[in-house]
């Protein structure tokens, strides 16, 4: 009995020893991969920072309005953001590779799925990012144009522009990750239609007032005062 126990214990221990013997190098390999990956990630982060600095990325994003957007969202400066993003992407890839090196079969499938999905997510995030930037930029342009044309409802106009662009971006991003393909499309169509209708009604009501103003001005020229009579140059 005791022998049996001892034997099986011994066997177990042998097994364990063998397993550990087998597992330890893999663990070591994993750790090495992760550490090397971490170093490479840091390196690529530095390289990215340098490259972006050389490309005057900051000035570029400043003028595009990104910087301000990020500041508003309490995010780091665009250069730092991109650099960290690079770091994390690189490191995660190494992390996954390292885990893969453990040779755990069940994990392996999951990881390959994640790895396959990663580019799509990345593209989607990028689309969202660019989309938000564009929305912001166009909204600001509309706002300034409206204000300088002395149009009322400048903010409403700018808001609508921003909303439309964001809406478009989100739908494109969702499309990209192909998540619940159909549901998204239907939901988006409904939402889009509703928004357009709403906008139409809103503009209709608003422009009633505007139209009256325009008509009043054009039929009573005495009242119309043109700013253009001053020459600025």
């Amino acid at each position: 009995m005791a022998d049996t126990i001892m034997n099986s214990l011994k066997e177990m221990l042998n097994h364990l020893a063998a397993a550990v013997e087998q597992f330890l190098p893999r663990l070591l390999v994993m750790l090495m991969i992760i550490i090397v990956g971490w170093l490479i990630a840091i390196l690529s982060k530095t390289i990215a920072r340098r490259a972006l600095a050389l490309a005057k990325f900051d000035a570029l994003s400043e003028s595009a309005g990104t910087a301000q957007l990020l500041r508003n969202a309490a995010l780091p400066a665009p250069r730092d953001l991109v650099a960290s993003l690079t770091f994390w992407v690189v490191w995660i890839v190494f992390l996954l590779l390292g885990i893969d090196a453990l040779g755990v079969v069940s994990l392996r499938d999951q990881i390959s799925q994640v790895l396959l999905f990663l580019p799509q997510i990345f593209v989607a995030v990028l689309i969202l990012f660019v989309g938000f930037l564009l929305a912001n930029f166009l909204a600001r342009a509309a706002l300034l144009a409206a204000v300088n044309a002395n149009l009322p409802f400048a903010r409403l106009l700018a808001g609508s522009v921003r909303f439309l662009v964001v809406l478009l971006t989100v739908s494109m991003a969702l499309e990209q990750i192909a998540l619940a393909h159909r549901t998204v499309l239907i939901a988006f169509t409904i939402l889009f239609g509703a928004v357009m209708l709403g906008l139409a009604i809103a503009f209709g009501i608003a422009s009633q007032h505007l139209a009256r103003q325009v008509l009043q001005k054009s039929f009573s020229p005495g009242e119309a005062e043109k700013e253009e009579e001053i020459t600025h140059l």
Partner: peptide
């Protein structure tokens, strides 16, 4: 003589201060 539309000037200024706060 140059005629000036003061109303529109002031209106433009106020609208700008009101709407362009963020910028």
């Amino acid at each position: 003589p140059v005629r000036v539309s003061r109303k529109r000037l002031l209106q433009g200024f106020r609208l700008g201060v009101e709407e362009l706060g963020a910028i």
